[in-house]
Amino acid sequence: MNSPDTGFPITLTVNGVPRSLVLEDARVTLLDALRERLDLTGSKKGCDRGQCGACTILLDGVRINACLALAVSHDGASITTIEGLADGDVLHPVQAAFVDHDAYQCGFCTPGQIMSAVGLIREGQAGDDPERVREGMSGNLCRCGAYAGITEAVLAAHAAMNAPDVLPGGHLSEDAA
């Protein structure tokens, strides 16, 4: 147990690099820890209430809203942000697909959209069905309305990554296609 007097020391592995920090206050969200303490401002603060998806990151490999997670509660976690996707100058396939398919206009929601798409493809629930992609991406709002391009980009990235088709979890019987 820690008290406000001593602060809360935590370590996060962010984009493969261990980062230690001392939170002076338990109220710090993962989003604020990334943006304000670790200077990783790619994850955006849109609504800060879990409604827009602009802060989407991968936490231990799974997409979540960083604005609705307390950093202190996730001591030891492994995090991937938009800054951790590209390999040097080589874009991640989802990033490349967003460029190819004009999947943004102002760009504010884009890091969250891309992280959410990476998470969706990993979850293996979208396959090549645009309806499942739209449903799977519904936690990411785009006020510019680039949804058509976003859907195309996710489908193209899924194909380019040769991602496995739908996991068994989506199936309710053995004979499902």
């Binding site: 799977g136 936690g139 068994p168």
Partner: peptide
Amino acid sequence: PAFAKAYPAVAEALLSGASAQLRNA
């Protein structure tokens, strides 16, 4: 898979709620 097969209405209800990010948390 076993849960969804045994209790499909529960699985469908869960997947109709919130967003993928929120359901993951």
